[in-house]
């Protein structure tokens, strides 16, 4: 299943790479995939995914015919988690580009990606807590995945504190870019270190590809793509808001001067 995640996240990285490295491709992609188009496409895919998840995909059966309805959250929870990781990785990539090229748009993009990643991370925590409650009867378990996300959320909360603590805009962009890279490096380390401790709980989402029936896989992948595209729309919207903010500042300066 891990390989499948990677495989299906790959187009996003390829697109991001193209957008970043070739100016023509960048312009073409930016013109074609407008925020609205991305948002509508992502939303539509998410709705289709939701329909498939609830009305087409069968409920998994464990033991003696016991159906688990709470598994439905899987079609939402996992795409959200993957998307938030993509946000964090994009944040670091754009942060690195800012440090190399010193163009402010990369700072804007890095900020937008991290913020969207953080928002989706909060959703991961929220849906995870709901699932824990329905499955184990407690609101919080120190379960490896949820704990990892809790640490990541605390780490990226520091990113926003860091940004607001910087007085000058240039140093804010620089330090935020550095921290976004440190945090992204720390993401896999956190995942790995949590797993040093043997977990008391069995892995309940048995998410190996073989155990997913085709309708389930379809629902999952469509939600996954929908979520990724929707998050790109959010990143773009955030980015253009920052560009507009910059322009407003400039116009204010001109009027005042």
């Amino acid at each position: 299943m891990k390989a499948i995640y990677l495989l299906y996240s790959l187009p996003i990285f390829v697109i991001a790479g193209l957008v970043v490295y070739f100016p023509t491709a960048r312009r073409w992609v930016a013109d074609f995939f407008t925020t609205r188009k991305l948002g509508v496409a992502g939303f539509a895919l998410l709705m289709v995914g939701l329909y498939l998840a609830f009305f087409v995909a069968p409920e998994p059966v464990v033991g003696e015919g016991k159906k688990i309805f709470s598994q439905k959250i899987f079609y939402y929870h996992v795409p959200v988690a993957e998307t938030s990781l993509i946000g964090f990785i994009l944040g670091a990539v754009f942060g690195g580009l800012f440090l190399v090229k010193r163009e402010r748009r990369y700072d804007f993009l890095s900020y937008a990606s991290v913020e969207v990643g953080f928002l989706f991370g909060l959703l991961v925590e929220w849906t995870g807590v709901i699932w824990t409650r329905s499955e184990w009867g407690t609101w919080w378990e120190w379960e490896p995945r949820l704990t990892t996300y809790l640490i990541l959320m605390l780490m990226y909360a520091g990113y926003f504190v860091l940004r607001s603590a910087m007085a000058e805009e240039s140093s804010r962009a620089r330090f935020a870019a550095v921290y976004s890279i440190i945090a992204a490096v720390s993401v896999p380390l956190t995942f790995f270190s949590i797993r040093l401790i043997p977990s008391v709980h069995p892995i309940v989402f048995t998410s190996s590809g073989a155990q997913m029936e085709p309708p389930m896989l379809a629902a999952f992948l469509i939600s996954m793509f929908g979520m990724a595209i929707f998050s790109l729309a959010l990143i773009r919207a955030h980015y253009s808001i920052q560009l507009m903010g910059e322009e407003v500042e400039y116009l204010k300066d001109r009027l005042g001067g």
Partner: peptide, 28 residues
């Protein structure tokens, strides 16, 4: 991280917020 935090308005207040989460894997 201390070099970053000392350059901020919050100065030494910022260090725990950014240093502790990054060092959690190490602590574990």
């Amino acid at each position: 991280l201390a070099t970053i935090s000392i350059n901020s308005k919050m100065r030494d207040m910022l260090l725990p917020i950014i240093f502790l989460p990054v060092s959690i894997p190490l602590v574990i």
